[in-house]
């Protein structure tokens, strides 16, 4: 059941098939639809263009997510947790588009690997052989979910390029730091920059993905432009945004949320309906865009990617390693 006035407030935008929609749109229209009215106009002049290499991308049929219903573009790009730009879901879309530049962008690869160094993000995309599109589920630890068509490349390609040494057991992702433009970083209690990490074998899983775009377009700033991590079987906070440093290490890094509240957020953060968070039941999730009355569904083990990733955690007590 839906509210009667559903039609009025779900603008036609969100009702059409996203694929058809975004393919035919120019960047300018796309920016316009980001904002609403005056706010949209404000966003226009400052928008920078992130990593543009490789677009338009081709959908990878092995990860087409055919059975999934893609979340409308407008929700994906205006409902964001990106604490660098504010605490509320609506903050990033405004605050990350006020002059913060994501082009040009340099990513450093460092640590226990043979091919380290600093790379321009577009050059990096060329090196790994371009981009493709994949439709993935996205599950936030706050018990909401989306379905997102990402553009980018499989993380394992980058790892192959870097050639980690035998000592390398973990991979660490560090987000940008720029407290002048990122208003959320002016609150130093958080302990910037944002850090996330994966076990190397997790990072080499076929699903682990480096995104440079969504809906066939370069990532908008609020979604973590120009380069972010996507690990669809884990809670969303694992997906470090606007990455500047990728490091191969022997020890597991202390990821940001674990450092802030280790009793609530662990290193693994695998989606698991049977392990509750102190404030959210993880057994089910709100579907973003589901409206007022039909917005809930059951959460799947490993967010529905059990077949691909379960073997990574064989024999581990997932209650303990949450």
């Amino acid at each position: 059941m839906n509210l009667k006035f559903n039609k009025n407030w779900q603008l036609s935008e969100s009702l059409v098939t996203p694929e058809k929609e975004y393919r035919s749109r120019t960047r300018r229209d796309f920016i316009k639809t980001l904002g609403f009215g005056a706010a949209g106009a404000l966003l226009l002049p400052n928008q920078s263009s992130a990593a543009t290499e490789g677009f338009p991308s081709k959908l990878n049929p092995n990860y087409s997510g055919k059975e999934l219903k893609v979340t409308p573009f407008n929700y994906v790009t205006s409902y964001n947790n990106f604490y660098e730009f504010g605490m509320d879901k609506g903050d990033p879309v405004t605050n990350s588009n006020q002059g913060w530049k994501t082009d040009p962008w340099t990513v450093e690869i460092r640590g226990l690997a043979r091919n380290t160094g600093k790379f321009d993000v577009n050059a990096l995309v060329r090196k790994v052989g371009g981009i493709e599109q994949r439709v993935y589920r996205h599950r936030c630890v706050e018990a909401w979910s989306m379905v997102i068509p990402w553009d980018g490349f499989q993380l394992s390609k980058l790892i192959a390029l870097a050639e980690p040494t035998a000592d390398a057991k973990y991979i660490t992702f560090t987000s940008f730091e720029d407290s002048k433009n990122a208003v959320g970083q002016q609150d130093s209690n958080f302990g910037w920059p944002y850090i996330e990490g994966l076990r190397l074998d997790e990072a080499q899983n076929e699903l682990a993905f480096m995104a440079t775009g969504v809906f066939g377009k370069p990532l908008p700033n609020q979604n973590g432009a120009p380069l972010r991590l996507v690990t669809p079987w884990k809670y969303g906070f694992k997906g470090a945004k606007s990455i500047v440093l990728i490091e191969f290490t022997q020890e597991a890094p202390l990821n940001t949320w674990q450092r802030i509240r280790s009793e609530e957020y662990g290193f693994y953060a695998n989606v698991n309906p049977k392990v509750d968070h102190p404030r959210w039941s993880q057994g089910s999730e709100r579907v973003i865009g589901g409206g007022v009355f039909n917005g809930r569904q059951s959460t799947l083990m490993f967010n529905g990617y059990e077949r691909q990733v379960a073997s990574l955690y064989k024999g581990m007590d997932l209650k303990r390693y949450y």
Partner: peptide, 11 residues
């Protein structure tokens, strides 16, 4: 709900 604030409409 009438102005199409997508952050609100999303959830």
């Amino acid at each position: 709900f009438f102005t199409g604030n997508y952050t609100v409409l999303a959830d």
